[in-house]
Design a protein around this nucleic acid. Structure first.
Lengths: 142, 142
DNA sequence: CTTGACCTTCCAGTAAGTGGAAGCCCTATA
DNA sequence: TATAGGGCTTCCACTTACTGGAAGGTCAAG
C-alpha cells in the first residue's frame, strides 16, 4: 500500500505517517522506487495510533501502548495503569480550567464593555485591587 | 533595576523576561556595562504579563492587552472582547476534556487490570469492537 | 587577587506535527 | 513520444512559550 492509500484508510495525514516513521512508531518497507510500502499490520498500527492520539495519549504513551498491543502476553494491568494516569492528568486539567473559567467569567460579567476605559479585567491584570503596600512593600526602592 | 531584581519582584524567571524583551513586550534600557536596566514601568508591565499569562491569555493577546493597558483612551469593550473569546476557548476546552474524561473513565472501569491480556481499553484502541465489515469494507484489497 | 554571584549572548531542545520547496516516478492522453 | 497531472521523496523551517546550558564578561566582598 502506498502512503496516500494508508493515509485515507487510517485517517492520518501522510505527513503525520512519515513523522511516525521518523520517530520509529512504524517501519514500512520500501519499494525499488523508494516509495514506502505499508503492510496491513502497519495500517492497523496507524489506526491504533490515531485512536490513541485522539484519546489524548502522548506519543510516548502511544509507543508503550503499541508495544503492549503487540505483546500477546501483556497484562491488562499495564494498559490500565497508563490509561488511569492519563485520566488523572485530564481530570486535573479540567479542574484547572474550571477554576480559570470561573475567574474569567467573574471578570467578564463585571466589565461594562462600553467605550469608557474603566475595566475590572484591567484592574485585575494590573493588580490595582491589591493594597499598594502589598504590591510594593514599604521601604522598597528601585 | 537589574534583571534578577525584576525577576524576583515580578515572579517571572529572568529567562522569560529576556524572552519577553526579544519578542518586544518590554524595552528596558541598557547600562554602560551592557546590563539591562528596568524602570518601574517595566516591572509593572511584567507583573501585568505574568498575571495575564497565568489567566491563560496567549502572548499575542497579552501584547494587545498591554497596548490597551497603556492606552488611557481604551474602551473596556475591547478588553472585554478579548477576555470573552478567551473564556469561550477555555470553556470549549473544558467540554472536550470532559468528553475525553468520560470515555477514558468508562474504559478504565471496565478494565480488570489483572495479569491477563484481555483489555477493553486495547479493544477500543484496536477498534475490535467495531464490526469487521466496518473496519475493512467487503472487497477491500491491499 | 580570587571567588562567587550576576549578568551577557547564542544555540538547542521541548510536543507533535504542519507547510512548503525542489525534485523523482508513474500513468494517461494528445 | 512528449507532456501534464498527481503522487511520492527528502529536507528545512515554523509553530507556542519558554527552558537549559555553555562560554564568557562584570561586580562586590574578603
Amino acid at each position: 500500500m502506498n502512503i496516500g492509500n494508508v493515509s485515507e484508510k487510517s485517517g492520518l495525514p501522510a505527513k503525520t505517517i512519515r513523522y511516525y516513521e521518523d520517530i520509529g512508531l512504524v517501519q514500512p518497507s520500501r519499494r525499488e522506487n523508494g516509495y514506502r510500502d505499508f503492510a496491513v499490520q502497519d495500517l492497523h498500527k496507524l489506526a491504533f495510533l490515531g485512536r490513541a492520539r485522539s484519546l489524548g495519549f502522548s506519543i510516548e504513551e502511544c509507543r508503550t501502548l503499541l508495544s503492549l498491543y503487540e505483546d500477546r502476553e501483556r497484562s491488562s494491568a499495564d494498559v490500565k495503569a497508563i490509561a488511569q494516569s492519563h485520566l488523572a492528568r485530564v481530570d486535573q486539567k479540567i479542574e484547572e480550567l474550571q477554576a480559570l473559567s470561573a475567574t474569567l467569567r467573574n471578570l467578564v460579567v463585571r466589565c461594562h464593555g462600553d467605550d469608557r476605559p474603566d475595566c475590572p479585567i484591567m484592574d485585575d491584570l494590573t493588580g490595582s485591587d491589591l493594597a499598594e503596600t502589598q504590591k510594593y512593600p514599604a521601604g522598597t526602592t528601585y
